[in-house]
Amino acid sequence: MQAPAPSSFADISDVIAIFVLLTEFAMFRAPLLRSQLKLYAVQSLLVTVLAGFLATSHHISELYLLGAASFLLKVLAVPYVLTRFLERTEMSLVTGPSLGAASMTLIAIATSAFGFFTMDATKVGSTVLPTTALAISIAIVLVAFLLAIMRSDVVSQAIGFLSLENGVSIASLVVASGLPLIIDVAFLFDLLVAAVVFGLLMKAHHVRAKTLSTANLDRLKG
């Protein structure tokens, strides 16, 4: 007896969601800050593709607009802004993650497994996208948290937040694809503003500390 395969539609959307998760893993490990930004752009592109795919298959015309907006802002604008900030700092390599490859991979796997099984337990279903995609999006969010917590440089931490938002985007495509377009667009512009401010503070940090590492951000305590 073999398990029946889900429909092709569910398959394709799951696979796209999984590739988003894989880019998240790749960001978690990427040694070059520049490549992290590129991975972020790729990830956003995948999210856009998912939105477009959903729009075509379910004939939700609003999602086309959302896809276009998300392409312009997340694939082009945000990476561009952050790349500009990074160019001026002329620093590409970070001090490296604080843990070895194996430990980080295991932690990432455990985290995403946790996300998978918790979402499975909540029995949240959707009419538009397979529930698996929701579980994957939660795993993306959790790995994004790891990225922001375990990497000790400002760029990774900013990317952690931005890619967390990508995870939430997928979740919202799954369970809230009917969310009014105006709200989605507001989210996106918010993200752009946040990216600019992240960039400004990165620059400020770099000017003060001459590094992108967060190692010296430990003066304030108590």
Binding site: A158, L164, V168, A204
Partner: peptide, 22 residues
């Protein structure tokens, strides 16, 4: 100090708001 505090604030609050968005 201000730069450090601002960075921590922005990062933590944004991550928290990510959860709020979910």
């Amino acid at each position: 100090g201000a730069t450090e505090a601002a960075w921590k604030y922005l990062l933590l609050a944004s991550l928290g708001l990510g959860i709020a968005l979910i």
